[in-house]
Design a protein around this nucleic acid. Structure first.
Length: 435
RNA sequence: GCCCUGGUAGUGUAGUGGCCUAUCAUCCUAGCCUGUCGAGCUAGGGACUCGGAUUCAAAUUCCGGCCGGGGCGCCA
C-alpha cells in the first residue's frame, strides 16, 4: 500500500468509517469559514472533502487554508461518516504532507465558473486534463483501444509495429513531412499501408497496428490533425473485400459496445451511447449517386463525394435508420493505386461512413505485381521509388485487403465532439507544435 | 492551396471615434464567519497583440507584421 495514498476518493467504503485513511491529490477548492474549513481534494476518480477544524488542529488548519488551489497534498486522518459531505464521508486531517505548491495565478482554472477557449486550454493542456470531463474522453479512448486489441486478437490478428521513418513517401496523395536522417533525407510515414501489405507476403498474414499517421497538409479545420492515430488492419487469403468489411464491422461494433460500458466516464460527459445495429447497410457508389440525384444533387461519375455531398448522403441514410453504412464499389479513379480493380472502371474499395463522416477506408489490394505497376503507371507514379515495396510482390504474395480507421474521427462521432483536437492529448495541427 | 474571420486583466467578456480614469463575471489578496458543497459578506488588485498612418481626439478607422479560429479542397 502506498504511503501517500491508501484510497482513492470513490473507493472509500463504509468499512473505512471510523478508521484512519490516507488520501492524496490536488486541492480543487478551499472554503474557509473561519473556524472550520472545507478542502475539496481531487484525484483520478473523483473528489472528496477534508474538513479542517481550527480549534482541534490549529497548525494543520493554517497550513491547509493557506495553500494555493491546485497544490498537491497527501492527508492522513480519521475517515468519518458525514451525510453533509460528498461521498458520504469526510477526512479529519491528523497529518498532511505538502507535495507540491501550485504557482498562482493559474493559467487556466480547473473549476472556474467561466469557460476557456480551446486554444487557451490546449496551451495549458496539463491543467485542462485535470478536468473530469476532459479526462473522461481519454478514459473512454483507452477502453475503446482495449476493445480493438481484444477483438482483433480474438479474430486471430497479430499486433505489429511498422516504421514511421521511411525512405520514400509512401502512397502519393498527401504531402509528407521531410526530416533529416544523417546524410540522407527521410520522411514521416503518412500511414503503414505499404508495410502492412509487405507483411502479407511473410506468413504474418493477419496483422493490425495502432499506427501514427503524419500528414503535412496545411488544412485548418476542426476535423484534421497533422499527427493522428489509426487502427490499421491487413489480412491475406481473402476472396474479396467483403471479408475485410466484416472484420471492420465487428471491430466497430465492439468498440462502440465497450464505449457504452464506460458508465462513469459517460455520465461525467453526460453522453449516452447507442450501439449501432449490424450488419451495416451496404450502398454501392452508383446507388449513392442515384440517391443523391433524387435530392437534386448531381455528382459527376468517378469523383469522390464532396463534404457537402457526403453529408447529404448521411442525412438520407439517417432517414432510413442507418447511422453507419459502407459505400462500396468506388470508381477506380477515386481510390489509391494499390486498390484492386473490379472490371475496367470500378474498384474493390469501400469507405465506412458514420452520419456523413468517413471513419474508415479500405479495399481488397492488388497482389499481382504487373497489375500494380500498370496502375502506378496509369496514375503517373514513379515506379523506381517503390522498388523495395514492389519487391515484396515478386516472391509469393497472397490476395489480401485491409483498412485504415481513424481513432480521433471515431471518438468525435462516438462522443459527439465538435473539434478533433479534443480527441488527442497533445494535438499537432497546422500551427501547434507545443506543448 | 483558395476563401472568410478574430486578438480588451490569469480566464471569459462589454465597449464600433470624445461620456473609457474601460463593463461585468470569474480569479487573486486581505478581513469577518463552525457545516460549506456555484459558500456568503466587506475592502482591494489586475487588461486594450505589435508597428505605422488618418484625426483636435483611436480599444474603436486604415495599412502591415505577429498570433489565433473556421469553411472549402484533400483526406482519417
Amino acid at each position: 500500500m502506498s504511503l501517500l495514498r491508501s484510497h482513492y476518493s470513490i473507493d472509500v467504503l463504509n468499512e473505512q468509517f471510523g478508521s484512519s485513511i490516507t488520501v492524496a491529490g490536488w486541492i480543487e477548492d478551499i472554503r474557509n469559514l473561519g473556524s472550520i474549513a472545507f478542502i475539496i481534494l481531487r484525484d483520478r476518480k473523483g473528489t472528496l472533502q477534508v474538513t479542517g477544524l481550527k480549534k482541534e488542529q490549529p497548525e494543520i488548519f493554517e497550513k491547509l487554508v493557506n495553500l494555493p488551489r491546485e497544490s498537491v497534498i497527501s492527508v492522513t486522518g480519521l475517515c468519518q461518516e458525514s451525510r453533509k459531505a460528498r461521498n458520504g464521508y469526510e477526512v479529519l486531517p491528523e497529518k498532511i504532507s505538502v507535495l507540491s505548491v501550485a504557482d498562482s495565478p493559474l493559467p487556466l482554472g480547473v473549476v472556474d465558473k467561466v469557460d476557456a477557449d480551446l486554444d487557451t486550454r490546449l496551451d495549458n493542456r496539463f491543467i485542462d486534463l485535470r478536468k473530469p470531463e476532459v479526462q473522461a474522453i481519454f478514459q473512454i479512448r483507452s477502453a475503446v483501444i482495449g476493445a480493438v486489441h481484444e477483438t482483433l486478437r480474438s479474430l486471430d490478428f497479430d499486433e505489429v509495429h511498422t516504421p514511421k521513418l521511411i525512405g520514400t513517401s509512401s502512397e502519393g496523395g498527401t504531402d509528407v513531412f521531410k526530416v533529416g536522417y544523417f546524410e540522407k533525407n527521410a520522411f514521416l510515414a503518412q500511414s503503414p499501408q505499404l508495410y502492412k501489405q509487405m507483411l502479407m507476403s511473410t506468413g504474418l498474414d493477419r496483422v493490425y497496428e495502432i499506427a501514427w499517421y503524419f500528414r503535412a497538409e496545411e488544412h485548418n479545420t476542426r476535423r484534421h490533425l497533422n499527427e493522428s492515430t489509426a487502427v490499421d488492419v491487413e489480412m491475406a487469403f481473402i476472396e474479396n473485400e467483403g471479408e475485410v468489411m466484416q472484420v471492420l464491422e465487428k471491430l466497430v461494433d465492439s468498440m462502440w459496445t465497450k464505449a457504452g460500458e464506460q458508465t462513469m466516464a459517460l455520465s461525467v460527459l453526460d453522453k449516452s451511447i447507442n450501439v449501432p445495429k449490424t450488419p451495416f447497410r451496404r450502398v454501392t457508389y452508383d446507388e449513392a449517386l442515384s440517391l443523391l440525384s433524387d435530392r437534386d444533387c448531381e455528382v459527376e461519375w468517378g469523383e469522390d463525394l464532396s463534404t457537402e455531398e457526403e453529408r447529404l448522403l448521411g442525412k438520407i441514410m439517417g432517414e432510413q435508420g442507418h447511422d453507419f453504412y459502407f459505400i462500396t464499389r468506388y470508381p477506380l479513379s477515386a481510390k489509391p493505386f494499390y486498390t484492386m480493380p473490379e472490371g475496367d472502371k470500378y474498384s474493390r474499395g469501400f469507405d465506412l461512413e458514420c452520419k456523413g463522416v468517413e471513419l474508415a477506408s479500405g479495399s481488397q489490394r492488388i497482389h499481382q505485381m504487373d497489375l500494380l505497376k500498370d496502375r502506378m503507371d496509369a496514375l503517373g507514379l514513379e515506379i523506381s521509388a517503390f522498388e523495395s515495396y514492389l519487391k515484396g510482390f515478386r516472391f509469393g504474395m497472397p490476395p489480401h485487403g485491409g483498412f485504415g480507421f481513424g481513432i480521433e474521427r471515431f471518438m468525435m462521432e462516438l462522443l459527439d465532439i465538435h473539434n478533433i483536437r479534443e480527441c488527442i492529448l497533445f494535438p499537432r495541427d497546422r500551427t501547434r507544435l507545443y506543448p
